[in-house]
C-alpha cells in the first residue's frame, strides 16, 4: 500500500450541495472545458454520422491525373490522396474508427476491467489486492508500444485465414476483413488500458471505505455489492472520469500509432494513422501539404480537447491547487 490517503474534508457538509452535482456545475462554469466538450462532441458526431455527413465513398478511387492528389476544392473539401480518394470522407470515417476504438477500449478496459478490479482490490484487500496490483506492475513494467507491436505482429500472420473463416461462418460477411485487425489492436491495448483506472479507483476506495457513511452502511448490514455500487462507486466516479479523460488521448493515440506503422486497422478502413502515414515525409509535405494538414489538424484538435478537458477536470477534483 504505497498510497498515503488524505482524509476527505468532512466539515460543513450541510451547507454545500451534493458533491455529484457540484462536479457537474463546476464543469459547466468552466468555459475552456465547455469548448473542449463541444469540439469532442463534433468529432464524435462526425464519426457517428459518417455515412450521412461524408460526401463520397471513402474508398472510391479516382485514378486520373486531374483527380489524384487534388488540392481542396468545392468538390473535394479536403482534396484527394494519391489514389484519388476523397480526403474529407476519409477523415470523417477515420473519426468513426477512433470513436469505435476508444469506446470499445474505455468500456471494456477502463470501465469493466479497471473499475471492477480497482473496486475489488481496494475493498477486499489482502491477497486479491496484492495479486491484482502485482499483475498491473508487471504489465506497466513492459515497454507498452513494443509489446503492443509484438501482440499485433504476432496475431497478424494468420489474419487472412481467420477473416475468411469469419466471413463464411458468421454474420459479419465482408466486414470480417476489417473486424479482425480491429479486434487485434483492441486486444493489444486492453492489457494496458485497465491499470491506470484500477490504481485510481483502488486508492479512492481505500479513502472512502473508512468514511463514516460507508462504515455506517456496513454496520447496518448492507451487502458488499450494495456498498460498492451505492456508497463507494459514486464517490469514486469524479476522479475515475478524470482518469479516463486523461488517458483518452493515449488510447486513441495507440491505434493511430499502430495503424501508422501498418500494424493497426485493415488498410481499407480509414484511420488517422493510415491517413497520416499516407501523407508521407518531408518531401511529400512540401509538394502536397494538404494531405498532412487535413488529417493532422482534426486529430490535433481531438487530442487538445481531451487534454484541456482533463486539465479542467483535475482543477475541479483537486480544487486546492486552483484556489487562492
Amino acid at each position: 500500500m504505497s498510497t498515503v490517503v488524505a482524509p476527505l474534508e468532512t466539515g460543513d457538509l450541510g451547507t454545500r450541495p451534493a458533491p455529484r452535482y457540484r462536479f457537474l456545475r463546476e464543469l459547466i462554469r468552466k468555459k475552456i472545458a465547455m469548448v473542449a466538450i463541444v469540439l469532442i462532441t463534433i468529432f464524435y458526431l462526425a464519426g457517428i454520422l459518417a455515412p450521412w455527413v461524408s460526401t463520397s465513398d471513402p474508398n472510391y478511387q479516382r485514378l486520373t491525373i486531374e483527380e489524384r492528389l487534388d488540392t481542396p476544392s468545392s468538390e473535394h473539401w479536403f482534396g484527394t490522396d494519391a489514389a484519388g480518394r476523397d480526403l474529407y470522407s476519409r477523415v470523417v470515417y477515420s473519426a468513426r474508427t477512433t470513436l469505435i476504438f476508444t469506446l470499445v477500449v474505455i468500456l471494456t478496459g477502463s470501465l469493466v476491467l479497471g473499475l471492477s478490479l480497482g473496486l475489488l482490490a481496494g475493498y477486499r484487500g489482502g491477497y486479491i489486492d496484492t495479486a491484482i496490483m502485482r499483475v498491473g506492475e508487471v504489465l506497466s513494467g513492459v515497454p507498452t508500444l513494443l509489446l503492443m507491436l509484438a501482440i499485433s505482429a504476432a496475431f497478424r500472420t494468420r489474419l487472412n485465414d481467420v477473416a475468411f473463416w469469419l466471413k463464411d461462418n458468421t454474420f459479419l460477411g465482408d466486414d470480417a476483413r476489417a473486424v479482425v485487425p480491429f479486434l487485434i489492436i483492441v486486444g493489444a491495448a486492453l492489457p494496458f488500458a485497465w491499470i491506470g483506472s484500477a490504481r485510481i479507483v483502488r486508492s479512492q476506495v481505500l479513502a472512502i471505505r473508512e468514511q463514516e457513511y460507508v462504515l455506517a452502511a456496513e454496520t447496518i448490514g448492507a451487502s458488499t455489492t450494495r456498498l460498492l455500487i451505492r456508497h463507494v462507486f459514486p464517490g469514486v466516479l469524479p476522479i475515475f472520469l478524470v482518469g479516463i479523460s486523461a488517458s483518452m488521448a493515449g488510447i486513441a493515440g495507440g491505434e493511430i500509432a499502430l495503424s501508422y506503422l501498418g500494424l493497426g486497422v485493415d488498410p481499407s478502413t480509414p484511420s488517422f494513422g493510415t491517413l497520416l502515414g499516407n501523407a508521407g515525409g518531408v518531401r511529400t509535405f512540401q509538394e502536397y501539404p494538404h494531405m498532412l494538414l487535413v488529417s493532422g489538424i482534426p486529430i490535433i484538435l481531438f487530442f487538445f480537447s481531451w487534454n484541456l478537458l482533463g486539465d479542467a477536470l483535475v482543477d475541479i477534483v483537486e480544487p486546492r491547487t486552483y484556489r487562492r
Binding site: 501508422y260 518531408v282 509535405f285 486529430i299 490535433i300 486539465d311
Partner: peptide, 18 residues
C-alpha cells in the same frame, strides 16, 4: 503547452524538418 503536447510526433516530425 497542452496544444504542443497534442501534436502527434509523426506530424511534428514532418512539419518541423520542412
Amino acid at each position: 503547452w497542452l496544444l504542443i503536447d497534442s501534436i502527434p510526433v509523426f506530424v511534428s516530425a514532418v512539419v518541423a524538418p520542412w
